[in-house]
Amino acid sequence: MEAWIDFAKGPLFAVTFLIMILGLARLLIIQLYNLIISKGGRLKNAPWKSILKDAATWFFPVKHLIKGTVIFSAFSFLFHIGVIIVPVFLADHIVLWENFLGANLPAIGQGLADFLTLFTIGCILVLLFMRIFVRRQRAMSKPMDYFLLVMVLFPFLSGYLASHPGSNPFTWESMMLVHLLSAEFLFVLIPFTKLAHIVLYFFDRISGLHWQLRPGAGDRVAKALFDEEARV
């Protein structure tokens, strides 16, 4: 078991983390390329001020949260706080960042980490519950929407149990292995599923820029389809 843990902590971590980084970098480059190269000079005419102002309101979205689906929205927002802070700033993870990236990040205290972990688990359960029991939300949901939530739940739950032997009905080793493997599976999922919004979110928020249509494109589409001038 020790050897498996070492493998998961070492080479497997490095490979899966690299897959995530390269996958996200690919998405980042494609989006940047399309914005800068394809749209080019048209971007200077875009209503940047209103687009950025609107985007900014979502980083502290109280004004938006109170407008509808208050419970779901609030839990979604709070969930993201835990999901960002705990994996990055937990003391045990800081060692990993230092080993692999050479980054020396500040750590959060164990008490805060425990609270945020439990809080995130609670948020996931609320979000799952609402997805199952709110009709309009269930109508929209696909298996992947449930699957990803459960996959995010795994590393948090296993991580908490591994660091709290009193609450852990299994051995530390088995729980740690589940923790590592589930987190690494998430790394691989991130660039290929809607978890890619880690990067794409920022582009979605400024997607108003896509109203800067490409001049002449309508003509080319029409010619390609009708082999003549566009039909009016």
Partner: peptide, 21 residues
Amino acid sequence: KYTDYKPLLDSYCNSSAKCNR
């Protein structure tokens, strides 16, 4: 092929949360 909608669709496909807001 001829317009700029592809990256937009790529982005939306990978981030639509279906949250129902």
